[in-house]
Design a protein around this nucleic acid. Sequence first.
DNA 1: ACTTGTAATATTGTATACATTATCCATTAT
DNA 2: ATAATGGATAATGTATACAATATTACAAGT
Lengths: 237, 237
Amino acid sequence: MLEEKKGLSLDVSSCKPLREIVFETIRCAIITGELQPGQRLMEVRLAEEMGVSRTPVRESIRKLELEGLVKMVPRRGAYVTPMSVNDLKEMMEIRRALEELAAELAAMNATAEEIEKLYEANRRFGESALANDEEGIIKNDMDIHDIIYEASGNKKLLAMINSLREQMQRFRAEYVHRIEDKTPLVDQHMEIIKKIENGESALAKAAVSEHIHSTGDDMLQVLYAVKNDKNKNEWAL
Amino acid sequence: MLEEKKGLSLDVSSCKPLREIVFETIRCAIITGELQPGQRLMEVRLAEEMGVSRTPVRESIRKLELEGLVKMVPRRGAYVTPMSVNDLKEMMEIRRALEELAAELAAMNATAEEIEKLYEANRRFGESALANDEEGIIKNDMDIHDIIYEASGNKKLLAMINSLREQMQRFRAEYVHRIEDKTPLVDQHMEIIKKIENGESALAKAAVSEHIHSTGDDMLQVLYAVKNDKNKNEWAL
DNA sequence: ACTTGTAATATTGTATACATTATCCATTAT
DNA sequence: ATAATGGATAATGTATACAATATTACAAGT
């Protein structure tokens, strides 16, 4: 008699259809800036480049439209959504509200293990900040926030913040290497983590609010500067 | 010399491609419950019913998946996402955060005209509540909130809240006719509107928070009751 | 020189075809 | 009788074909 093979968990969702790969590829290209804002997305061209047919490309473009990364004009084609500074401002406002919520919930739900991971991630963030290691700064900053979202226990919230964050990353790449010193953020992070650890949800929320607000302002300032540089290409239309 | 024809704004996007109609039709069917949670969506069947080919149906399903209304399992098909009570809780948490933000921003940005529309909508809401007119209650309640979102001046926020709200409406229809008296909400609305009118953003935010929180709790209570009714079909899985 | 009209080309929108995989049902073996 | 097996059927994943529309180029007229 055969035993039921429980240990062998074959995740059906792991065999990704082509369309998901196509979707993520195009999406990534937009986020990283490989496909520039305003650029037209032609189905045949993209399909040829990726060696697939138009079908998965079309489906991907439609989804990206829903996400706001692509703008479609019927019968005229699809374009990478240009982001204005105002769009960024809107997204930052929303992100702040969602991050506040995440911190609030995390303070109520975080496990000891998650707290530990937060301290560790912030330690690494501090190292990167000191070393002025751009990649490390971004990575570890993201990690910290990711852990908080996870700790919030709200999966939908996590997905929404991540979507927002990835879209904002289109600017972020531009932004980060214009800032000199990231070390003050280590203390801000530490404050947030402590409130979460103590379960002080209102304080955690306030700390995150302040954190996002300050970094957000920084970012906008830089962006206005960028926008006024006439030699910059047409980011903000 | 010809003047530039600024006044004549021909909206190209008004000629909707078939796929948009298909998308909205399926989406609406899910939200209204015509397509029930857990139900399988078969492309050929839907295509035949609507008299179109599989292509626009597929694209619609993919988009609905991104929005969370549909769950896809590769090679096995698409299903209307079943919503658990926990899902609803998550969405309500998020909605509350976003509504708070909207009120906060509205208090900073609302025009006199928008304030006027708020009072008017709440007056109609009060009438509906007194008459116990379900449809009017929903409609006018939505109107009030819509005006606030508009007044916030944040288009992306508006889109996000609307998406959330429409998803939650899948439950809301179930919910509303189980509640007897909606008239207390008129005062809650009035309080919010006044704060917005006075530009007291923090207070507006707090009022909305309380408003959403209380109605949300109501809703969850009702839902738990519904869930425990064994004769209810498999809403909450 | 600039606009207007028309044909050629290219691109999107939709439908259909084909290949692969899952599902279902009947048959067979234990 | 139950479980396993194998084939028929049906559904998805992808590619391609065709129709409708937009874009471009170029010629002709004002």
